[in-house]
Protein backbone atom coordinates (compact mmCIF):
# COMPACT_ATOMS: atom_id res chain seq x y z
CA UNK A 1 0.00 0.00 0.00
CA UNK A 2 1.43 3.41 -0.85
CA UNK A 3 2.19 5.66 2.06
CA UNK A 4 -0.33 8.51 2.02
CA UNK A 5 0.94 12.01 1.59
CA UNK A 6 0.55 13.27 5.12
CA UNK A 7 0.50 16.91 4.06
CA UNK A 8 -2.61 16.29 2.01
CA UNK A 9 -4.35 13.77 4.16
CA UNK A 10 -4.14 15.93 7.25
CA UNK A 11 -6.04 18.61 5.38
CA UNK A 12 -8.76 16.35 4.13
CA UNK A 13 -11.78 16.73 6.38
CA UNK A 14 -13.25 13.56 7.82
CA UNK A 15 -16.13 12.20 5.76
CA UNK A 16 -19.46 13.72 6.64
CA UNK A 17 -21.24 11.56 9.14
CA UNK A 18 -24.69 10.25 8.49
CA UNK A 19 -26.96 11.70 11.17
CA UNK A 20 -27.77 9.08 13.74
CA UNK A 21 -24.92 6.99 12.42
CA UNK A 22 -23.73 5.18 15.50
CA UNK A 23 -22.54 1.67 15.19
CA UNK A 24 -23.76 -0.25 18.20
CA UNK A 25 -22.94 -3.78 19.15
CA UNK A 26 -24.37 -6.09 21.74
CA UNK A 27 -21.88 -8.01 23.76
CA UNK A 28 -21.58 -10.07 26.84
CA UNK A 29 -18.65 -9.89 29.24
CA UNK A 30 -18.05 -11.92 32.36
CA UNK A 31 -16.85 -9.24 34.76
CA UNK A 32 -15.62 -10.29 38.17
CA UNK A 33 -17.61 -13.48 37.85
CA UNK A 34 -20.93 -11.94 36.77
CA UNK A 35 -22.23 -11.93 33.20
CA UNK A 36 -22.89 -8.39 32.01
CA UNK A 37 -24.88 -7.71 28.85
CA UNK A 38 -23.98 -4.46 27.12
CA UNK A 39 -24.92 -2.50 24.05
CA UNK A 40 -21.99 -0.31 23.15
CA UNK A 41 -20.68 2.06 20.52
CA UNK A 42 -18.18 -0.21 18.76
CA UNK A 43 -15.45 2.37 19.34
CA UNK A 44 -15.70 1.91 23.11
CA UNK A 45 -12.50 0.67 24.68
CA UNK A 46 -12.63 -2.06 27.27
CA UNK A 47 -11.51 0.62 29.73
CA UNK A 48 -14.44 2.91 28.99
CA UNK A 49 -16.86 0.00 28.96
CA UNK A 50 -15.74 -0.75 32.52
CA UNK A 51 -15.56 2.82 33.78
CA UNK A 52 -18.49 4.44 32.02
CA UNK A 53 -20.95 1.71 31.01
CA UNK A 54 -20.47 -0.58 34.02
CA UNK A 55 -19.38 2.20 36.40
CA UNK A 56 -16.51 0.09 37.67
CA UNK A 57 -14.26 3.09 38.20
CA UNK A 58 -11.55 1.22 40.09
CA UNK A 59 -9.78 0.77 36.77
CA UNK A 60 -8.13 4.09 36.01
CA UNK A 61 -7.54 6.14 32.89
CA UNK A 62 -4.14 7.82 33.10
CA UNK A 63 -3.22 8.31 29.46
CA UNK A 64 -5.66 6.38 27.24
CA UNK A 65 -2.70 5.52 25.00
CA UNK A 66 -1.08 2.47 26.53
CA UNK A 67 1.72 4.47 28.10
CA UNK A 68 1.09 4.38 31.85
CA UNK A 69 -0.50 1.08 32.95
CA UNK A 70 -3.17 2.59 35.22
CA UNK A 71 -5.87 0.73 33.26
CA UNK A 72 -4.37 -2.75 33.73
CA UNK A 73 -6.98 -5.51 34.19
CA UNK A 74 -6.87 -9.27 33.83
CA UNK A 75 -8.55 -10.72 30.73
CA UNK A 76 -8.82 -14.50 30.78
CA UNK A 77 -6.24 -14.40 33.55
CA UNK A 78 -3.66 -12.33 31.66
CA UNK A 79 -2.90 -8.69 32.30
CA UNK A 80 -3.74 -6.22 29.58
CA UNK A 81 -3.93 -2.46 29.09
CA UNK A 82 -7.69 -2.05 28.84
CA UNK A 83 -7.34 1.30 27.04
CA UNK A 84 -5.65 -0.36 24.08
CA UNK A 85 -8.37 -2.85 23.30
CA UNK A 86 -11.97 -2.46 22.19
CA UNK A 87 -14.67 -3.96 24.36
CA UNK A 88 -16.20 -5.77 21.36
CA UNK A 89 -13.01 -7.79 21.00
CA UNK A 90 -13.74 -9.56 24.27
CA UNK A 91 -17.15 -11.12 23.66
CA UNK A 92 -17.74 -13.81 26.23
CA UNK A 93 -14.40 -13.34 27.93
CA UNK A 94 -13.70 -13.22 31.60
CA UNK A 95 -12.46 -9.89 32.98
CA UNK A 96 -11.11 -9.36 36.47
CA UNK A 97 -10.81 -5.78 37.70
CA UNK A 98 -9.59 -4.44 41.02
CA UNK A 99 -13.18 -4.68 42.30
CA UNK A 100 -13.02 -8.43 41.70
CA UNK A 101 -9.83 -9.08 43.64
CA UNK A 102 -10.95 -8.43 47.18
CA UNK A 103 -13.67 -6.90 49.26
CA UNK A 104 -13.72 -4.35 52.05
CA UNK A 105 -14.09 -7.20 54.54
CA UNK A 106 -11.52 -9.47 52.92
CA UNK A 107 -8.80 -7.69 50.97
CA UNK A 108 -6.80 -9.74 48.46
CA UNK A 109 -3.36 -10.47 49.97
CA UNK A 110 -1.79 -8.11 47.41
CA UNK A 111 -4.17 -5.32 48.40
CA UNK A 112 -3.38 -5.89 52.08
CA UNK A 113 0.35 -5.89 51.34
CA UNK A 114 0.07 -2.56 49.51
CA UNK A 115 -1.60 -1.04 52.58
CA UNK A 116 0.99 -2.52 54.94
CA UNK A 117 3.98 -1.39 52.87
CA UNK A 118 2.50 1.97 51.82
CA UNK A 119 2.78 0.89 48.19
CA UNK A 120 0.99 3.97 46.90
CA UNK A 121 0.53 7.63 47.55
CA UNK A 122 -2.14 9.33 45.47
CA UNK A 123 -3.74 5.96 44.75
CA UNK A 124 -4.45 6.55 41.08
CA UNK A 125 -2.03 4.02 39.61
CA UNK A 126 -2.70 1.60 42.47
CA UNK A 127 -5.43 -0.64 41.03
CA UNK A 128 -3.33 -1.12 37.90
CA UNK A 129 -0.21 -1.85 39.95
CA UNK A 130 -2.09 -4.41 42.02
CA UNK A 131 -3.66 -6.17 39.02
CA UNK A 132 -0.27 -6.21 37.34
CA UNK A 133 1.46 -7.50 40.47
CA UNK A 134 -1.00 -10.36 40.88
CA UNK A 135 -0.38 -11.38 37.26
CA UNK A 136 3.40 -10.99 37.57
CA UNK A 137 3.57 -13.54 40.37
CA UNK A 138 1.49 -15.94 38.30
CA UNK A 139 3.74 -15.41 35.27
CA UNK A 140 6.85 -16.16 37.32
CA UNK A 141 5.14 -19.17 38.87
CA UNK A 142 4.26 -20.40 35.39
CA UNK A 143 7.89 -20.14 34.37
CA UNK A 144 7.36 -17.46 31.72
CA UNK A 145 10.75 -15.79 31.24
CA UNK A 146 11.44 -12.06 30.99
CA UNK A 147 14.24 -9.90 29.60
CA UNK A 148 16.16 -10.23 32.86
CA UNK A 149 15.68 -13.95 33.48
CA UNK A 150 19.07 -15.62 33.80
CA UNK A 151 17.82 -18.76 32.16
CA UNK A 152 14.80 -19.55 30.04
CA UNK A 153 14.17 -22.72 32.03
CA UNK A 154 14.62 -21.61 35.59
CA UNK A 155 12.59 -18.48 36.19
CA UNK A 156 12.63 -17.49 39.84
CA UNK A 157 11.23 -14.56 41.73
CA UNK A 158 13.80 -11.84 42.37
CA UNK A 159 13.85 -8.07 42.77
CA UNK A 160 15.12 -7.77 39.22
CA UNK A 161 12.31 -9.95 37.83
CA UNK A 162 9.66 -7.95 39.65
CA UNK A 163 11.11 -4.58 38.65
CA UNK A 164 11.40 -5.62 35.02
CA UNK A 165 7.90 -7.04 34.78
CA UNK A 166 6.28 -4.14 36.66
CA UNK A 167 7.89 -1.48 34.47
CA UNK A 168 4.76 -1.04 32.38
CA UNK A 169 3.02 0.48 35.38
CA UNK A 170 4.15 4.02 36.10
CA UNK A 171 3.84 5.45 39.61
CA UNK A 172 4.67 9.15 39.43
CA UNK A 173 4.46 9.44 43.22
CA UNK A 174 7.43 7.08 43.18
CA UNK A 175 6.24 4.32 45.50
CA UNK A 176 8.26 1.73 43.57
CA UNK A 177 10.46 0.60 46.47
CA UNK A 178 7.39 0.03 48.64
CA UNK A 179 5.50 -1.72 45.85
CA UNK A 180 8.47 -4.06 45.50
CA UNK A 181 8.29 -4.85 49.21
CA UNK A 182 4.56 -5.57 48.93
CA UNK A 183 5.00 -7.91 45.97
CA UNK A 184 7.88 -9.67 47.67
CA UNK A 185 5.80 -10.27 50.74
CA UNK A 186 3.02 -11.89 48.73
CA UNK A 187 5.48 -13.70 46.49
CA UNK A 188 7.28 -15.20 49.44
CA UNK A 189 10.60 -13.49 48.87
CA UNK A 190 11.96 -11.83 52.01
CA UNK A 191 11.82 -8.05 51.65
Amino acid sequence: MPIPDTETSSRTPAPDPVPGDVSLARLSLRVNGAVRELELDTRTTLLDALREALRLTGTKKGCDHGQCGACTVLVEGRRIYSCLTLAVMHEGESITTIEGLGTAEALHPMQAAFVKHDGYQCGYCTPGQICSAVAVLEEIEAGIPSHVSESLDAVRISDAEIRERMSGNICRCGAYANILDAINEVGGQPA
Binding site: R51, L56, T57, G58, T59, K60, K61, T97, I98, E99, L101, G102, T103, A104, L107, Q111, A112, F114, V115, K116, D118, Y120, G123, Y124, T126, P127, I130
Partner: peptide
Amino acid sequence: DRIDGPLKVRGAAPYAYE
Protein backbone atom coordinates in the same frame (compact mmCIF):
# COMPACT_ATOMS: atom_id res chain seq x y z
CA ASP B 1 -1.18 2.75 57.81
CA ARG B 2 -3.09 5.29 55.75
CA ILE B 3 -6.74 5.44 56.71
CA ASP B 4 -7.71 5.89 53.06
CA GLY B 5 -5.55 2.93 52.06
CA PRO B 6 -8.26 0.24 52.05
CA LEU B 7 -10.36 2.42 49.71
CA LYS B 8 -7.47 3.12 47.38
CA VAL B 9 -6.30 -0.48 47.02
CA ARG B 10 -9.85 -1.53 46.11
CA GLY B 11 -10.29 1.27 43.59
CA ALA B 12 -13.15 2.47 45.76
CA ALA B 13 -12.01 6.07 46.25
CA PRO B 14 -13.91 8.08 43.62
CA TYR B 15 -11.78 10.63 41.76
CA ALA B 16 -13.20 13.60 39.86
CA TYR B 17 -14.17 11.87 36.62
CA GLU B 18 -15.74 8.97 38.50
